[in-house]
């Protein structure tokens, strides 16, 4: 084939891949632009701080914001210690090539691929029906306290879902810590835990933070796992105890979009709620990307 033809075809195909790239960037921009355009007008301090009124066709989303924050805080308290210590085990304690370590890694990767709805089923079957009902039978004489959908069970279900995120980010950060630092700590007589606590962990803060932020973003976004484990259609009060149900932003979007008696009246509220949700997850993810790129740059520097 003629050299010029080859060049032409090469350019054409390169341009096609560029077009694919541009399409995706455009899609992201259009989604954000569309939601911002329609949601901005309804966004006000009052919208963020008042409860829904009149069959959820008026008012704000304060209970949903409150529930989201409550839920995500509980989830973080559960998942961060667990995820960080799993990563510490894999990097600092275990033999890198042992069967057990391979099995743990494989389990973490597989856990990341389990569909969110399956986590929802598990939350119902395990946390509510087994653990919750078990607690009720053991401590409350069978009265219904924990054997029902509740914010605690929803948070723990989400914690399992986000565990891989925290483990992977933390591990990546632990990998960056130079071997020499560990050897120096040992040579000064530090035990393994002292070395981890004083030398490795302080340097891994960025990675732990990245993992936590990504986990929170995921927790804010996922609906399917909390559908049967505690999310409420509408509540006239704010949840204050661990065994209460809760309103939450993402489920609120689903409810407003699919069960509204008057979709035209609800639509402005819906857009504003989606905008708040998007602003939250995108800010979190952007922060994670910035922190991670700082971490990666340091990794290149240390080589």
């Amino acid at each position: 084939m003629n050299r010029r033809w080859i060049d032409l075809i090469s350019r054409a195909f390169t341009a096609l891949t560029g077009l694919a790239c541009a399409t995706l960037v455009l899609a992201v921009a259009m989604i954000l632009g569309h939601v911002a355009y329609h949601g901005w007008a309804g966004l006000s301090w009052k919208f963020l701080t008042t409860a829904p009124r009149n069959g959820m066709t008026e008012g704000g989303i304060f209970p949903a914001i409150f529930g989201t924050v409550f839920l995500v805080v509980l989830m973080t308290v559960a998942v961060v210690p667990l995820g960080v210590s799993t990563a510490i085990y894999l990097r600092e304690y275990a033999h890198a090539d042992s069967r057990w370590v391979q099995a743990v890694r494989m389990a973490i990767q597989n856990l990341a691929g389990v569909p969110a709805i399956v986590f929802g089923l598990f939350g119902l079957g395990f946390f509510i029906e087994f653990v919750g009902k078990g607690i009720d039978a053991a401590f409350f004489g069978g009265k219904l306290y924990f054997g029902q959908p509740a914010i605690l069970w929803a948070a723990l279900t989400l914690a399992l879902l986000t565990l891989p995120t925290v483990v992977v980010s933390t591990e990546e950060a632990l990998r960056v810590v130079p071997r020499g630092h560990r050897e120096v700590a040992y040579s000064l007589g530090a035990t393994r835990w002292q070395m981890v606590r004083r030398v490795v962990l302080p340097q891994a803060v960025d990675g732990i933070l990245t993992g936590t932020i990504l986990a929170v973003s995921r927790g804010v976004g996922e609906v399917a796992p909390i559908l049967f484990t505690g999310a409420a259609f509408y509540l006239p009060f704010l949840p204050t105890r661990l065994n209460q149900q809760f309103m939450v932003m993402n489920y609120h979007v689903y409810v407003l979009a699919t069960q509204s008696p008057d979709i035209d009246a609800t639509l402005p509220l819906l857009y504003s709620t989606v905008l708040v949700l998007l602003l939250l997850t995108l800010t979190l993810n952007s922060a994670a990307i910035v922190i991670r790129s700082r971490l990666r740059r340091r990794m290149k520097g240390s080589k």
Binding site: L24, A27, V28, I31, V35, A116, S217, V220, G221, E222, V223, N250, Y251, V253, Y254, V274, L277, L278, T281, L282, L284, N285
Partner: peptide
Amino acid sequence: LAAIPSVV
């Protein structure tokens, strides 16, 4: 794109 919740 991965950060956009599926409900959105």
